[in-house]
Design a protein around this nucleic acid. Structure first.
Length: 309
DNA sequence: CTATAAACCTGCTGGC
DNA sequence: TGCCAGCAGGTTTATA
């Protein structure tokens, strides 16, 4: 799934190929892909727009256009941005060789930037530059940015009772980490995914800070992690999968100590870790287990009974 | 504040 | 071999 490294890698590729081009036309096959404004306005605004720059914020890709506008793209689960060469004949709309094409941007050199997305979760928005910060409001620290320091991470964790895994996935805390790199970061730092945030020691915070950066930078270096769908703009898969230590390796030996890796579900997400290298939290640092549905039912029955007395 | 679950979607996998 | 339930996960929204 596209997380920060997958988005950053594609952003760098697009910076090489797209800046300086002009969008000559746009078509949308799946209207819900366009989050803002309505599809008709979206398609009407784009022809003639020059691509001025490509940026990334968290898992968002930003394409800055002339006319004080910008495209904001989120690939969500299965979205990809592919660059296709000019169509052989004069049919740029029919010749897109991808069954999951949701939107096509025709460029002045005949190339086509195609947004493909089997699951249809991905979103593209067009905003005036002045509304960009509002559209991106609420995002947390940029993990590769200057503001992400060990001290800032420590401040973020202090006084919080949350489990580390859900916290790392929370985009309002740190923005850009997803399921793969959350597991990889915690393994590299030697921290159990169920540890409560406020129980991390300063050395552990420092380790986690370094681990997050290392894991993300390696991911970018390797063109991202492809599990199923991530592709770069040329349709190439990422090469980071071979460098993962724990994600999707349940039952296989830990690369550090040989212990079979474990998979549990945390916050509705598959979570992979080494029970030896990421020692389980001491009893008083564990988040109290949530009651099962049956236990809750019993509790509510008891409550009603005592209320009736 | 924190947690849980469902919704959005469809390709893929595993079990029978 | 073929069918189908269930899983996968980023984000938003609703509920406790």
């Amino acid at each position: 799934m596209p997380e920060l490294p997958e988005v950053e890698y594609v952003a760098r590729q697009l910076r090489q190929t797209l800046v300086g081009r002009t969008i000559s036309d746009a078509r949308v096959n799946w209207p819900r892909t366009i989050a803002h404004p309505d599809v008709a306005t979206f398609c009407a605004e784009l022809p003639g727009a020059h691509v001025l720059g490509i940026d990334r914020r968290a898992k968002y890709l930003l394409i800055t256009l002339s006319g004080d506008q910008a495209l904001l793209i989120h690939r969500r689960m299965t979205g990809n941005l592919l660059l296709f060469p000019a169509a052989a004949d004069d049919s740029p709309w029919e010749e897109v060789p991808d069954p999951y094409c949701r939107a096509v941007f025709l460029l002045d050199d005949g190339c086509r930037l195609v947004f493909t997305d089997p699951r249809k979760f991905g979103r593209i928005a067009l905003y005036p530059t002045s509304e960009l910060s509002a559209a991106l409001h609420g995002l947390g620290l940029e993990p590769l940015g200057e503001e992400f320091t060990p001290e800032a991470l420590g401040k973020l964790l202090a006084g919080r009772s949350r489990q580390m895994k859900p916290l790392l996935l929370d985009q309002t805390c740190i923005a850009g980490i997803g399921n793969i790199y959350a597991d990889e970061s915690l393994f590299r730092a030697g921290i159990h995914p169920l540890r409560r945030a406020e129980t991390l020691t300063p050395p552990e915070v420092a380790r986690l800070h370094a681990a997050i950066r290392e894991v993300l930078e390696l991911g970018i270096e390797h063109g991202g992690t492809t599990f199923g769908r991530h592709q770069d703009i040329w349709g190439e898969a990422g090469r980071n999968r071979a460098h993962l230590a724990v994600y999707q390796r349940a039952g296989e030996p830990c690369l550090r100590c040989g212990t079979p890796l474990v998979r549990v579900v945390v916050a509705q997400r598959g979570t992979h870790f080494c029970p030896t290298c990421q020692p389980g939290p001491a009893a008083d640092t564990l988040v109290e287990a949530a009651p099962t549905e049956a236990e809750r039912e019993v509790a509510s029955l008891k409550e009603r009974a005592s209320a009736e007395k």
